[in-house]
Each structure stands twice: as C-alpha cells, then as structure tokens.
Design a protein around this nucleic acid. Structure first.
Lengths: 204, 204
DNA sequence: TTGACATATGACACCGTGTCATCTATAGTA
DNA sequence: TACTATAGATGACACGGTGTCATATGTCAA
C-alpha cells in the first residue's frame, strides 16, 4: 500500500504521479520498469517517490488493484445482466479485458500485466476469486449465480468451477496477447474451450 | 541458447557452472537472481560467464528446457502406461512435479519457476503442448491418446483439450506451491477439478 | 515568534550489469 | 623448434539503477 503521504497529496499531483507510473508500467514489465523513468516523467525528485511508495512494486500493485476492482464490479454486473449465467459473464469479461489490452497508449499497462503474470500478480488480478473473498462476499457472488444450470451440488464445488474458469480465462488472455491473436480469433478460441468445459472433456 | 564455448567446456567445469546456476535460481526467481552470485559460487571470473551465456535468462532457460524435456518424456511414458488415458497421465505429472518442488535443496528451482511463471516461462515449460510441437510430433502424442473416451471429433479439438488441461494443471501447480498446500491437499483439489472437467461444468 | 511536526529534496554509497583490451593456451604448419 | 592463428580467459571499468539520509522547507497551533 502507498504511504499516507500519497493519499494526502492534492488530486492534481496524485494524478500526475499515477499517470507517470502507468506510463512506465505500460512501457515494460514490473521488473524492467525503472523508478528513475517515473521520476523524470512526473518531474519529482527521487526522495519524493519514496515518500509516497515503499518501492516500485507498491506503486504497481496500487494501479493493479484499482483495475481489479473495476473488473470485479463489471463481473457482478454481468452476472445480473446474464441472469446468473457464469459462462456468459466470464466471456464478456474476457472480451472486455482483451479489448482494453488492444487499445494502444496508457492501457498497454494491462498487456504488460498479462505478459508478466506471475503468481503474485495473478493473485492480485483475481483477488475476488479467492476462497476467502468469495465466502466473505457470499451474497454478492454466490447468490447471483444460476446454480440450476451447473453440474454441482454444493458451495465448495462452485469454488472449483470458478477456479477452472479463471485458470482457462487467464491462460487464454495471456496466450492471446503473447501470440498477438486478433480479438476475433482469441474470442473464438476462448468460446470453443468454454464450450468444451460446459459439456465436459470425456464422452458420456 | 548457451554459446558454443559452453558446450566445448569439459564435463567437470560445465557441471560446476550448471550447479552454480541451479543454486542461484533455487534461491530466488529469475529476476532476483544475480550473475554475481553464480560467479562467486562457481569460482569463475565475470568475463567467463559472458563467454558461455548471453545473459542470465540464457542460463535460466537452458536449465528449464532440460527439465521440460524430462517431463515430456515422462508424459509420453505415462500415456503408454495408462493406455492413452490423458487424465491419468496428466495427474501423474502433476503429482510428480509437486513432489519435485517439495524436495528441498537444489530442486527449489522448480518451486521458483512455478512461483514466477510468466508467459515466457510457461511457454518454455509447456513447449511440447504448443500447436506446432504437437503437430510436429503427431505420432508421439496424438496416436498415444485414447480418442474414444474423449468428447471430441477432430484433431483440433484435442489441441483445445490439451490447452485446458495445461491451464488447469499449471494453475493448480502454482496455487499449491504459493499457498503451501500439502501434497495430499493439492492432489485432492486437483483431482476434484479434473473430474469436473471430465463430466463438464454444465448440467445435462 | 517559536516549536513541533509533516513533507520535500538531491547528493551519495552501494551494487549489479555487460564490455573490452589484454593476456594465455592450444593446435596446425613450415 | 619457432611461428602464427584462433579460441578462450580475465578483471578493470563505465554505466545506470536503487534506497537512504542529512538537510531544507512548509504549516499550523500556541
């Protein structure tokens, strides 16, 4: 978490900082990013950066968490829109995230996040799908899901369904971005795999 | 790829180098690893390292590829042993890989690989599951698989089945290691999800 | 005005990387 | 043996990035 000093900053300066960080993390991955570039870009002295953030990662995960939050809201909305159809909801998220990562400019951030998705980043990216978060927000998620259509008998199995969906979704996101698939190709591959997931890999 | 000089080295010195690199990559991730530590540990001067490798990544991926090769052989053997049952084969690999990453010592290498699995590393890790490799080695893989038991009608769909299995498998590997699950818990979670995959997430 | 506290600043020590000029070893040739 | 060409070994060095710290500046209340 950024230090209190960061949140005490006036809106303008905070936005400049956020912009500069986003710019650098859009250029390269977290590990290749340099604080020095953020400093130059934001026009602040070195010491100030450490007044606001612990380090590079601190700034990075602050940005990432904001994005994750947004995506989660969207997911909940999708569940409502699609009457609890978790597959439709997740496909929409896939499409939306790919779209953002295809938009050039500042949002290359998402592309770099996807290309360098390690467990720590994935954890932050899928924070709301963890066992703890899911049970904490039982009402929000579990209750929105259309259980009847799923091949499960209890709450625990829904957790595993989510795990599988998130694994396949993020695998496809990363695969699409790293192999530079067109959005159409990516979505068509993804839908094919989601369908396989729905009907099952084994013959009856 | 390491430079020719590396392969011209006598067995002894090459093993010392490999050992030193493995030691460093077992300590921390690729990005945190320092060449300086490898130098100290191998007792070679700085310039020599660059005589053998392009850079850190070069050494890392050399080690990783060796491991991937081994795992692939194992997978093919498993397919034979289990009469083409791809789920059994993959479960065995899961178990085996977790076992290796639980063994302390040099093989913390695998643990660090799993914890920092980004697309580049995943690509190297699952090299033999890419579309190109699969079609190149059609005989080896496709022919070993028991098609009858799978819910698919063509070769292309087998590719997607493999993609799904690899996504879920690696997600579980990373999840198990990062959440420090016991091998039993990890395997039981994995088997549960594999079963969901087999029967399908949707109700008939 | 003064003191107490929060914030800002940039010089600096430290560390890791990759390069390069130079040295050494080896092997082929006359 | 002496000469030469080629491969390999070496470590000093320039460069760039990080995080810290002593010092400067600003703010607010008494």
């Amino acid at each position: 978490m950024p230090k209190p000093t960061f949140f005490n900053l006036n809106e303008g300066k905070r936005q400049i900082l956020i912009g500069a960080a986003k710019k650098e993390f859009s250029r390269v991955s977290l590990y290749e990013a340099s604080i020095s570039n953020i400093l130059k870009s934001a026009g602040i002295p070195r010491g100030s950066f450490y007044q606001y953030f612990e380090d590079k990662e601190d700034a990075f995960f602050y940005l990432l968490n904001e994005h994750t939050q947004e995506r989660h809201e969207k997911f909940l909305n999708n569940l409502k829109t699609y009457n609890g159809d978790i597959f439709e909801a997740v496909t929409e998220i896939f499409h939306h995230t790919l779209n953002r990562s295809h938009t050039e400019g500042q949002n290359n951030f998402i592309k770099n996040v996807l290309l360098n998705m390690n467990y720590k980043i994935e954890k932050a990216f899928t924070k709301f799908l963890s066992k703890e978060e899911l049970s904490k927000r039982y009402d929000e998620v579990y209750e929105l899901v259309d259980w009847k259509s799923l091949n499960i008998t209890n709450e625990n199995q829904l957790y595993h369904v989510m795990q599988i969906l998130s694994a396949v979704t993020f695998h496809n996101l990363v695969h699409s971005v790293s192999n530079q698939l067109s959005i159409e190709d990516a979505v068509s591959k993804y839908k094919l795999e989601i369908n396989l997931l729905k009907t099952g890999l084994s013959k009856k």
